[in-house]
Design a protein around this nucleic acid. Sequence first.
DNA 1: TATGAATGAGTATTCATTCAT
DNA 2: TATGAATGAATACTCATTCAT
Lengths: 217, 217, 217, 217
Amino acid sequence: MSIKNRPNNQKEMSFIEKARRAQIVECAIETIAEVGYTQASLGEIAKRANISKGVISYHFENKEELLGQITTEYYIAWQSYIAPRIEAQKSPKEMLRVYIESNLAFVAENRKHVFAVIELVSKTITANGKLQFAAEHDEAVFVPIENILTQGMQEGVFREFTKSSARVMALTIRNAIDGFTMELMRKPHVDVQEYTRELVTIFDISTRKQGVALEGR
Amino acid sequence: MSIKNRPNNQKEMSFIEKARRAQIVECAIETIAEVGYTQASLGEIAKRANISKGVISYHFENKEELLGQITTEYYIAWQSYIAPRIEAQKSPKEMLRVYIESNLAFVAENRKHVFAVIELVSKTITANGKLQFAAEHDEAVFVPIENILTQGMQEGVFREFTKSSARVMALTIRNAIDGFTMELMRKPHVDVQEYTRELVTIFDISTRKQGVALEGR
Amino acid sequence: MSIKNRPNNQKEMSFIEKARRAQIVECAIETIAEVGYTQASLGEIAKRANISKGVISYHFENKEELLGQITTEYYIAWQSYIAPRIEAQKSPKEMLRVYIESNLAFVAENRKHVFAVIELVSKTITANGKLQFAAEHDEAVFVPIENILTQGMQEGVFREFTKSSARVMALTIRNAIDGFTMELMRKPHVDVQEYTRELVTIFDISTRKQGVALEGR
Amino acid sequence: MSIKNRPNNQKEMSFIEKARRAQIVECAIETIAEVGYTQASLGEIAKRANISKGVISYHFENKEELLGQITTEYYIAWQSYIAPRIEAQKSPKEMLRVYIESNLAFVAENRKHVFAVIELVSKTITANGKLQFAAEHDEAVFVPIENILTQGMQEGVFREFTKSSARVMALTIRNAIDGFTMELMRKPHVDVQEYTRELVTIFDISTRKQGVALEGR
DNA sequence: TATGAATGAGTATTCATTCAT
DNA sequence: TATGAATGAATACTCATTCAT
């Protein structure tokens, strides 16, 4: 029976099968990261993996499933990396710092994967001809920041945010992080530590309650 | 003789020729904005322009030239819009505010064009198989902000920035602006005025010299 | 503008366009007749037409449209051939004779086309995985015979038919005609005239009102 | 050693081996009957049989052998069913009646198998690119009817048939039977008994010696 | 200038077949 | 015996580009 038709493919998937899929996904990531989404044909991916095109079709229902796997794995890895680090913090201020720090660290440690996902997401936007953002994932990404902002505001350490100004702040933080990825692509040797420090500073300052902030100095 | 083979096509280009190219470029922008880069084939563009595919090939060396034109025109329009508004300001603080305000206004007024360029840039990144950002343009974009930051620092109204921390700040501002475009795509009815106000606040606070800032309040 | 997207392609189709389509359809018919439906790939058809595969895609939306054209043209040609010949007859007996005669003549004169359609219809049966006969066409084919039978019965020259026995007779006549096509494929030099005479005899006898029939002898 | 390479595989075939092949053939029949020849890939057949694709390749030289088995088994089953029933009759008239009756009964009782064979035959016609009917089988099919007709003619109960008019009659009877199968596919609930009665009537009338026939009434 | 027509390389996908385990 | 894995040829279709008119 073909893998594709298995009812419960998650559980029935053999070790070898998982490994093969993982290898192909890995190769797809590298291919996209190196030649871009548009050039990343199944043929190109297969060539780089030193396998025949058919192998990919054997292990994945279609191209969409393969690419979907990249995104899914990314979000899982990202969440597993970020969440515990934030939860280990006590104050919102620290949480925000760690959010930024761990995101940049994650990006720096998974450059290719992150870049591949950025490519994928940017193409998915208009996949079927109509603007259709990967809304679930996308919006899920903002939740942790918005939570941190809300909490910090309630505890009185952050300045006041309305619902929509909180969203702008959340978006701006996310954009800063995603933008860092692009900068990393342009300049692979950028000083990650310093970039991190600067971002932390920027958003520490701009979220801080003004009076309190001064006292802290 | 085809236009393509003319030695000096820039200068010899007739009025009609220019108009035709402009029309095609306009159509290409709309097509990309509506159906996305991947679906924006020459055939699709031609269909929307009610012309034959051959016409595009006649007026443009190849697809790359057509798409390049979109980007080029965009930067020119952007610069013509932004530059005078900034230059009309006296203080760096005002310049930064106006930079953000005029950028968001420009984006809001030229949604399709801006979105098309974003689509293009994201695809151009790996056009030839190697990462190749539209470096000239891209870097040029940061110059005005970096100039503002430097000036503000020298005048003592902004906090201290090293060369690299100034770049991080410049990037973060740009990313916030580009991110606004994406938000505008996701939620076309977002309150532009409010978003603008929030961004101005965020970057006003985070660039401000701490002591001075308080006095200003 | 591509032909495919024209709203009213029937009318706007140029002479050259029509000719090209006709040529391709002709070639497709020959290909199917010679190598069978399964082997009749677009590539094979193109090869026999001495054109590139792309030409077919240019003139036809997809393979389905091309093959559909074969069937459609066939039914039109068939009807144009059969109908006037039947209508020229006065008695149902003559109409039945002419129906058989003209069908066999039509088949003999359009062997390839008829065989191609038989191939196509037999494949269409299970096109989407479920039994789905080309019902409209198929059922339409029985109508003229059923009409003749009914008329002959009402005039008292044919024996009595219930609704379902009339259908069986109609089907049997059609099957005899389609079976002749197969025989023609197996034995291209079969004596058409004789075959026709025999079929006419068989169905003349088997529809005839028994008493009346004898008088006629 | 693979079965395929065994010199005398017919005789050496074990019981288990036979059973396995039978099971696969059975499954192939159902698959073809349900999804049609074109969709009946080895993968599909294997899936329905709950075995791996490789098993089929292990037990059958290639797809052709598997499909050939379907046809062969069909003819054997058909012959075993029809022959004794005809032989049990005394008069040609009865033999003809029983031939039609038993054929329709056989079809009705083995719908899937019969339909699968029809699908196969229609595709096999042009299997290698050239028209190649399953001639042996096919021609063998006409023999019993031709024998009946000859006998009936010699006994003076059937009208006169030349060699070729006998063939037309034989073909027409076969076509009527095969056509019934198609009707059964289109309308599974068709009244088999009634259809049978009608066909018997039609061919009783059309073979009958005219004078004799009347007397019989 | 503009067009319709044609091209051919490239895309994802399917599938019969092979083979090591 | 049976299997999962792999292969590579074949298929329909897309599209940037060329070219004669």
